[in-house]
Design a protein around this nucleic acid. Sequence first.
DNA 1: GTTGAGCGTT
Length: 267
Amino acid sequence: MSHFGRSGPPDIADTYSLLVLNITFRTTADDLFPLFDKYGKVVDIFIPRDRRTGESRGFAFVRYKYADEAQKAVDRLDGRVVDGREITVQFAKYGPKAERIHKGRIIETPSKSRHRSRSRSPRRRYRDDSRDRDSRKRSRSRSRDRDRSDRDRYRAKDRDYRRRSRSRSASPDYSRGRGRSRYDDERRSSSRSRDSPSPRRSLEPRRSYSPRKNSPVKGESPDRRSRDGGSPTPRSASPRGRAAASRSPSPRNSDVDVSCSPHAPIY
DNA sequence: GTTGAGCGTT
């Protein structure tokens, strides 16, 4: 039962691949087999997983022997809740049997079938610094587009989640089942004092900042040598405090001043 | 132990 994907594709002479999305990261082929096998003859099930971690990517390929059965499985299993997650079953678009499926049903063109325009692959597949850098340098317009898409994606995702929740009474009770108190962290931090005696903490227990000392200094970079050699502990609060201090007490800005300047009319 | 929006292996 676990031979799926072990010896590669057994016989894809007349098989139809179905793409199963939205499956849990722990779902295995053995879990999907009984579900899909009920609707037809499943030839093979393959779940691509990451080479580095070996974890499933969240989707699986189920190969059926007959197209009609695959179609039925898509119709019946699509939207089904498996392992607490609503899976999405659809014909595989890409793959060795893409053309075959093309004649089966994909011919309907995914214009407005289900999910709206889906991006290529926002999720980083493999780490390729050289190629990534090259691509970014080659076309900067693409980089800008990607940036925008990234932000848009976040909003779209949020909206999608809400919509999905209403569509099908999702089961958010899963979180409730495992009541975990986050206050444990606080408690643990209390006992942490014993773990790290922090000898240099005596220098400055991060009580308060000293604005009168480095405030008047301007143009120099005291956070470079002074911090490193002096007190490395308050380094964490350095950027924040410095930014706030620098931003707050500087009401005289060139840009804003021009607007309010009395000797700067609309001329 | 974690996330998530996606197209494949010996």
